[in-house]
Design a protein around this nucleic acid. Structure first.
Lengths: 245, 245
DNA sequence: CGTCTGGTTGATACGACTCAAATTTGGTGG
DNA sequence: CCACCAAATTTGAGTCGTATCAACCAGACG
């Protein structure tokens, strides 16, 4: 689905009709990945840039003894991984959370796109820089926040990212992550995530069931999470420019 | 000092004499930052790209109540932060660990450099992608490893990064970080870092005193840290290509 | 010398983990 | 539409890794 995709990129630069057409051309879904299956695995040689067209996915890394850390989430509209440009070998895996539509783009196609559409290139790099900023925030989150704050922070982040591409309804959104996913992403155990979610519910900060998340009072949840949205850079100039004008 | 700088960039692409000259031109130190002082602070509007010419520095983020997380280290030879290209406002601070030589490069100068030296641009972006990879590894490190493994991992990473730019001597290197720095970087308390370092010493894995680190058996330390060097991408093709040939 | 920063030690507390089992939910096929 | 199974969630009891708090020590420095 182009919509979320374009919305996401246009958070950075306004794209021309031509830019959008070129993206749409490459965004043709080339395969569907079933929930919980991998898009690509650590150690593999990446031959394509994977563009997540629809669905949720995550990047994760594992230790030899099986411990697993989700290091980031792709939500619908998030674009792709440019790693193929440096990596001989993936240093992490990408796994589908939900049913996932992926467009595999060859390096050549991507080179052609960026060569003829500089604004797209710019938007891609901006997206990459925001991804690093998010990764830094996760380091802070896991390193310093308590379980309660940490989960609150992650929920706010995901909600705001979804909202920025129009995937929320008032104070709620689809939320396909299991408690085990949350545990792997926060460096906690699933049991402790469970108990902490109950606390958050008890405190009236969230409602979470049947893969739906509702945040009755976003500001209150942001406060307990000490959430500062600056790292998402949602206020970029792209929001105010338009290449078509 | 150009040497480490060029070495670092050349880990990615071989640079021509002309490329190197252009970098050297911009690398003229424009100021010296005293140890423990900030290069730039969260919330500020970045007007320059900061090129760390010599010395150690770190990026860090803080929470309103004072908790502090170092999210990455700059070691000598590490280049700079391209954040200025997206950020209206810094989402983190950069602080000097040692006396630090910094070249402040204006966006215009940087644009000129990259416009006329595509290989430099490429090298810069590669460096940025490696930085994300390191940031992901830190997420894994803090999220999943025990204090003992975690500190071991950080020490190995720093040693290997220093080695890749020729700043190690056999099995040792300068090591200006305090135990408090290590604590802020690993999400542990200084007290616990102290005890864990003692364990590592007792186990013969490290010697650390007077700002010198010695790793008698790197492989052994890598084993306890479950260190997989793939994320540093030190084996990039740049090592085998030369723009002058 | 006093002062300061960084390092070390001891005693105690608590947040998060482990292990184990029960319960609920969701999907699948008969 | 129900029976069944697997996955996800929940609960309980006990443990442990790491934090906290509070001194104390050593070297660097003015």
């Amino acid at each position: 689905m182009g919509p979320a995709l374009s919305l996401r990129l246009e958070a950075f630069t306004r794209l021309s009709q031509d830019d959008k057409a070129a993206i749409a051309e490459l965004s043709k879904v080339s395969r569907v990945v079933a929930p919980r299956r991998d898009v690509i695995r650590e150690g593999e040689n990446p031959r394509y840039i994977h563009l997540m067209v629809d669905g949720w996915a995550c990047r994760y890394k594992t230790l030899p003894d099986g411990r697993r850390q989700i290091v980031s989430f792709f939500v619908p509209g998030d674009f792709c991984d440019l790693n193929v440009y440096i990596l001989k070998e993936m240093d992490h895996s990408v796994g589908a959370i939900t049913r996932l539509s992926v467009a595999d783009i060859s390096r050549d196609d991507m080179d052609r796109l960026t060569a003829s559409h500089p604004r797209v290139t710019q938007a891609l790099w901006w997206e990459e820089l925001v991804n690093v900023a998010i990764q830094r925030e996760w380091t802070l989150n896991i390193g310093q926040r308590t379980a309660y704050e940490r989960i609150a922070h992650l929920l706010v982040e995901l909600f705001m990212r979804l909202r920025s591409v129009g995937l929320t309804q008032a104070d709620s959104c689809d939320f396909p992550l299991t408690q085990t996913d949350l545990a792997d992403a926060t460096g906690l155990t699933a049991v402790h995530v469970n108990r902490t979610l109950q606390e958050l519910r008890r405190d009236g900060l969230i409602e979470l069931e049947k893969r739906r998340l509702r945040i009755p009072n976003l500001q209150k949840l942001m406060d307990v999470a000490m959430f500062n949205p600056n790292y998402l850079h949602l206020d970029h100039e792209g929001r105010h420019l338009d290449a078509n004008e």
